[in-house]
């Protein structure tokens, strides 16, 4: 009962119709969004999966029972089926697949985070600038975007990796460079509808500079749809990273990258199914998690979908 009272107070403080400070207003807004999000069961499942990925990545050293890179005795521990000792079996170098999948979460999370951090701002900046100013700047920026869009993502990434040399870092750069154009398109489309809104006219009449309008007024309104799109694209990004790994152009052995692990297990697929299947299941689960999360976010953040 005593534990409940302050919680009740907090919830009321957050949902107050008359916030008394900037902080309370912002937290209250975030709280309302969160409350709406929690109503979406599948979205919560997606969030759970993504949080699990983060948790596993952070505590990989603690969770993983074996070393992910150095295998056991090659005479007795190669290609063992799943058992209590090795939850997902072992691979051809006698390494514990479970430990490798756990450590692979780190690489996956790194790919996802870096691509999001690199591609989203580029896309937002190009899209909002292009949409807000229009004219020749719009034409130039959008044609560049079109050129990037015209290449199949994996092929363009392949070309980049071929030029820069294989490796997980170069794979990330390649994926980031090929994934911003859709965000730029999306941000531009949103900007085109926002820039004629009365509240943008209003701030223009207050004498605000274009940079202030784009950054402070247009971008926040584009952000939610871009975040949704990025989240939904995460599955594709993970798959592209895995694809590059599978082709031997992403993470290099012995790094426990899921795509590269599938490639390694491909040779034994018929006789030792678990070697390729386990990392495949991990890719599937995480991709599904991001998709569900993205759908959930769309329901909350996108006012058009809500009605």
């Amino acid at each position: 009962m005593t534990a409940d009272a302050p919680r009740q107070g907090l919830s009321e403080w957050l949902q107050s119709e008359q916030p008394a400070s900037r902080r309370q207003a912002r937290l209250g807004q975030a709280w309302r969004t969160w409350l709406a999000f929690t109503k979406n069961r599948l979205g919560m499942v997606g969030l759970g999966i993504v949080l699990l990925l983060v948790f596993v990545a952070i505590f990989a050293d603690v969770i993983a029972p074996y070393d992910p890179v150095i295998g056991g005795d090659l005479r007795t521990l190669r290609l063992l089926p799943p058992s209590m000792d090795h939850l997902m079996g072992t691979d051809d170098l006698a390494r514990d697949i479970f430990s490798r999948v756990i450590h692979g979460a780190r690489l996956t999370l790194m790919v996802v985070a870096l691509v999001a951090v690199i591609a989203t701002p580029i896309g937002l900046l190009v899209g909002t600038t292009s949409g807000y100013f229009g004219g020749w700047l719009d034409i130039v920026l959008m044609r560049i975007t079109d050129i990037f869009l015209a290449f199949p993502r994996l092929i363009l990434a392949l070309a980049f990796v071929a030029a820069l040399g294989p490796g997980i870092e170069n794979a990330i750069i390649a994926i980031a460079i090929t994934s911003w154009p859709p965000y730029a398109r999306l941000a531009r489309a949103e900007t085109l509808t926002i820039r004629n809104a009365e509240h943008i006219d209003a701030i223009r009449l207050q004498g605000a500079s274009p940079a202030r309008i784009i950054w402070g007024h247009v971008t926040p309104l584009c952000l939610s749809s871009v975040i949704i799109r990025v989240t939904l694209d995460m599955a594709g990004i993970i798959l592209t990273a895995a694809g590059l790994g599978f082709l031997g152009l992403g993470a290099q052995p012995p790094q426990p990258e899921w795509g590269a692990m599938i490639a390694g297990g491909r040779r034994f697929l018929i006789d030792y199914w678990w070697v390729a299947t386990m990392p495949g299941a991990a890719i599937f689960l995480v991709s599904l998690g991001f998709n569900l999360l993205g759908d959930g976010l769309r329901d909350v953040l996108d006012p058009k979908a809500a009605k």
């Binding site: 009365e198 509240h199 209003a202 701030i203 207050q206 007024h217 926040p220 309104l221």
Partner: peptide, 14 residues
Amino acid sequence: QMVFQDPYASLHPR
């Protein structure tokens, strides 16, 4: 300075 017609559109929603 100017006051616009639609009070629902003239304030930034966020």
